[in-house]
Simulated scan of single mutants.
Amino acid sequence: MDLLVQKSDFQNITQIAHHCDFEVLEQYILERQNLDLVKLLGNSFYVDVIENRENVEYKDLLDGSKFTIECGGKTKTLIHFGLKRVLIHYAYAAYIYRKSFVDTPFSVVVKQSEDSIPVSPSDLKVVHDENRKMAYSYWKMTLEYLCANEDEFSNFDETLCSGCTACKCSCGGNGCSKCKGGKTDGTRRNKVKVIKKDD
């Protein structure tokens, strides 16, 4: 299975060591990709993302972008940071919490050196939980993008859009008959303009 993120994607986002063993990090990326992302996206849409990752619409979904929606007669610009950012924080949470445990012939041990003291499991759990919360916050922003652009993604489950800003704005508010719990009655939504992320 192709990894959606590489070691370089972690730069300026999380604190991984320069000498990080990327083979170990890859295990956590793949684990979280196969569990967290599949759960968030749904199995069918996850396959679409993997297979279409080079297409423009999917690159914006993966890397993040600015986009506009029509809301109450006004144009609003929103931003999301992409599925890669979501995956990075999920993978980092697992990596930071479990990487120091090493399986040996004698048992599972914690790596340490003369000049270091291992961080307590409770402190690692705090960092783990914080990164999972960040991942989910980034996911909610990315979900706004998906809901605003659902016509571009045929296998995206639009029922996930219940209560999102893009749905409310497109429908003119919660009471609109066009939008019930995130579902549409087949009427096409206002076209959303995607603004490329600055390099």
Score class of each variant (00 low, 15 high):
65 S>L: 07
66 K>Y: 01
66 K>L: 11
68 T>Y: 11
69 I>V: 11
69 I>G: 01
70 E>V: 10
71 C>D: 05
73 G>R: 00
73 G>Q: 07
74 K>W: 00
75 T>N: 13
76 K>P: 01
78 L>M: 07
78 L>C: 08
78 L>I: 06
79 I>C: 00
80 H>T: 06
81 F>Q: 00
81 F>R: 00
83 L>T: 07
86 V>R: 02
86 V>P: 04
86 V>H: 04
87 L>C: 06
87 L>H: 02
89 H>Q: 12
90 Y>D: 12
91 A>F: 12
91 A>H: 12
91 A>M: 13
92 Y>H: 15
93 A>D: 13
94 A>V: 12
95 Y>L: 08
96 I>V: 12
97 Y>H: 14
98 R>D: 09
98 R>C: 07
100 S>Y: 01
101 F>A: 04
104 T>G: 15
104 T>N: 05
106 F>W: 05
107 S>L: 01
107 S>V: 06
108 V>Q: 12
108 V>C: 07
109 V>Q: 06
109 V>D: 12
110 V>M: 06
110 V>H: 02
112 Q>S: 01
112 Q>F: 01
112 Q>H: 03
113 S>F: 11
114 E>D: 11
115 D>I: 11
116 S>T: 15
117 I>C: 07
118 P>Y: 14
118 P>D: 12
118 P>Q: 14
119 V>G: 00
119 V>P: 01
119 V>F: 07
121 P>G: 00
121 P>K: 07
123 D>S: 03
124 L>S: 01
124 L>R: 05
125 K>F: 15
126 V>T: 00
126 V>I: 13
128 H>V: 01
128 H>S: 00
129 D>S: 06
129 D>F: 01
129 D>W: 04
130 E>G: 04
130 E>S: 03
131 N>A: 02
131 N>Q: 08
134 M>F: 05
135 A>E: 10
136 Y>S: 08
136 Y>L: 14
137 S>A: 08
138 Y>D: 15
139 W>H: 14
140 K>F: 03
140 K>P: 10
140 K>T: 10
141 M>P: 10
142 T>Y: 01
142 T>H: 08
142 T>P: 13
143 L>Q: 13
143 L>T: 02
143 L>R: 04
145 Y>I: 02
145 Y>L: 09
149 N>D: 10
150 E>N: 15
150 E>L: 12
150 E>S: 13
150 E>I: 07
152 E>I: 10
153 F>I: 10
155 N>D: 15
156 F>V: 15
156 F>T: 11
156 F>N: 11
